[in-house]
């Protein structure tokens, strides 16, 4: 990992999104103090903590595995950090009770972790983090061991909770929906480097690299050869929802596959040497062929080294497949 600069503003949630092995967990461990950087500095709340032990950094971490202490009851699990800081017994009891109440696990304090369901353990791990009232929260894929329904519910609860306690959060995930929905700021990471930082909607609307374009957004952006449009771009990206199907479209493509996503249908189209995915309303009648128009105003252009080209000299008129074949 090198050249990573990230700033999490107070009270905001910054998610780091990236494929597995991109270094996002290492980043979290560096901030926590579990690993040491070869160079560079880490500041928390304006204080340089680069050389400090994890316990002296005033951060709390939620692990993917939850890392609850199996031999301690939930109360002890939540209380241990306070006890290690020698807080008076009454205060420990009071703060544990409050944290447990916020997460709705007051009734589980007398149980052992193995007697809890996955969702309950997840809450216990969160309670253990918030009871400390730390300067920053570090979360490492905290929802990935939950089933889809629980994940969706917990995601919303997390956001509400963190906003309520005005937490400063560094959140690592490979799940782009989590990143999109939770973040104030989002950083996309690949091979130990930050590809782009910004608000989720900005990143979605204006990916600055080819990698981000392909990684953020589901279904994935169509990544097509750059010579579809004049202007010298190496690659062109168009999101499936930006593919226009219209009777006057210049390209005729065959419908290879229809996948229903409920309110929308994802069409796989093939024709003229191209393969595309297009997202259309569910009401659209099925057809064997569709006429397609690619709008350069909705396209993203990338150079050969994967960087975004902001204003390629493109004629405003849509380019057709025929035009391209004419080369």
């Amino acid at each position: 990992m090198s050249g990573v600069t990230l700033d999490v503003p107070d009270g905001e949630i910054l998610t780091v999104l990236g494929p597995s092995g991109c270094g996002k967990s290492t980043l979290l461990r560096l901030v926590a103090g579990l690993d040491r950087p070869d160079s560079g500095e880490i500041t928390i709340g304006g204080e340089d903590v680069t050389g400090r032990e994890p316990k002296d950094r005033d951060v709390a971490m939620v692990f993917q595995s939850y890392a609850l202490y199996p031999h301690m009851k939930i109360f002890e699990n939540i209380a241990v950090a306070l006890r290690l800081r020698r807080l008076p017994r009454e205060e420990v009891g009071c703060r544990v009770a409050k944290a447990a109440e916020m997460l709705g696990i007051s009734g589980l304090l007398g149980r052992y972790p193995r007697q809890l369901s996955g969702g309950e353990r997840q809450r216990a791990a969160l309670a253990r983090a918030i009871v400390r009232d730390p300067k920053a929260f570090l979360l490492d894929e905290p929802l990935s061991n939950l089933d889809a329904l629980q994940r969706e519910r917990t995601r919303a609860e997390l956001k509400t909770l963190f906003k309520e306690i005005r937490a400063t959060v560094l959140y690592v995930t490979h799940d782009q929906i989590e990143a999109m929905t939770l973040s104030d700021q989002m950083a996309v990471m690949r091979s130990g480097q930050i590809e782009q930082v910004g608000k989720p909607e900005e990143i979605y609307a204006r990916p600055t690299t080819f990698f981000v374009a392909g990684f953020v957004g589901s279904p994935q952006m169509n990544l097509l050869p750059g010579d579809l449009f004049p202007g010298g771009a190496h690659t062109v990206g168009i999101r499936p929802e930006d593919i226009l199907l219209a009777p006057e479209g210049p390209m005729e493509m065959g419908v290879v596959l229809r996948e229903s996503l409920g309110s929308q249908v994802l069409l796989s189209l093939r024709g003229g040497g191209l393969e595309l995915k297009a997202l259309v309303p569910a009401g659209r009648p099925a057809a064997e062929n569709e006429r397609v128009r690619l709008d350069p105003a909705r396209a993203h252009f990338f150079s050969a080294d994967g960087r975004r080209i902001d204003s390629p000299s493109i004629s405003s008129s849509a380019v057709t497949r025929k035009g391209r074949d004419g080369h």
Partner: peptide, 8 residues
């Protein structure tokens, strides 16, 4: 790791 961060 968790125990280190918890302050041990």
């Amino acid at each position: 790791d968790a125990m280190s961060i918890d302050g041990a």
